[in-house]
Design a protein around this nucleic acid. Sequence first.
DNA 1: CAGAATGGTTGCATTAAGAAACTAAATAAG
DNA 2: CTTATTTAGTTTCTTAATGCAACCATTCTG
Lengths: 153, 153
Amino acid sequence: MTRKRFDDMGCSVACALNEVGDWWSLLVVKQAMLGTRRFVDFQHSLGIAKNILCNRLSRLVDNGVMVRVDVGEHGKRYEYRLTDKGRDLFTVVTALRQWSERWNGEKDAMQLVDGQSGEPLAPVVVQNQQGTVLTVRDVRFVDEEGTPLEQAG
Amino acid sequence: MTRKRFDDMGCSVACALNEVGDWWSLLVVKQAMLGTRRFVDFQHSLGIAKNILCNRLSRLVDNGVMVRVDVGEHGKRYEYRLTDKGRDLFTVVTALRQWSERWNGEKDAMQLVDGQSGEPLAPVVVQNQQGTVLTVRDVRFVDEEGTPLEQAG
DNA sequence: CAGAATGGTTGCATTAAGAAACTAAATAAG
DNA sequence: CTTATTTAGTTTCTTAATGCAACCATTCTG
């Protein structure tokens, strides 16, 4: 009676959620994007229990989202760093952050700005090849032959 | 010893995950974007237990992501539909889908295309106001006064 | 009226999460 | 060299979440 597996549902979204779909994983990734690298720093900044953090970091490493680097420095022996795959979650985390700010208000003292200009970022959007912004009503879901499925509501 | 609450951490991402950060919620939303509206259809297409589906739908309705509509038709009495807030998760779901396809390969028989042209969508990206694509290394995290925090790795 | 479909609820077993205590290795202080 | 401290865990115990199956009340279908 183990938890349902999402990686064999024939769905990319389910497959993604199988890796980072729990309560903590994306928060760990977000914190890593803020620059956090060490175990204790994740623990204190997130307020996560040590055994859970341990488990989440192991899973993220197993899934190639983070790497565990041995640094023989001071009392800190390991660092957890994002891989390219992990850094590529920036879009997901940013979309999630903006969604929350739009619908739940600004709960965050922190703001994300362009490193060059210092200006706020543009909203993350779905676009077609020409750069036109698309909503869920503007897209079709088709199978490999191009046959359309039912439409969104 | 209840589950940690994420809505009072002073973090927008945590706040978002408090609403849709469990294993099932985003999959229900994704399925709704595919056109699924009825309880049994969610149940069969996702392979989710009825009590869990019941709980997730209630939570999504409570959080304003979906609405429960009474339709006195055939044996189907209710429909669950996305609200504007729910439809706005399209960006998140699409980013997650594309991330999974990039790093885990195409596990999905289904494809997302522009409803007009039938072409595949552009990758979801983070941009600045001018439309320049930004990675996590190109942004800064600042507090309300504009003071920068540590940088990402 | 009988049976099926819909949208649930309840009970039980298993797994995950959270808090606190404990451990082991490396470092720092004295 | 010895002791304390920091780091990165593991273990134990309690509570919450998940999954399965059975059950239930309406509403349709035959």
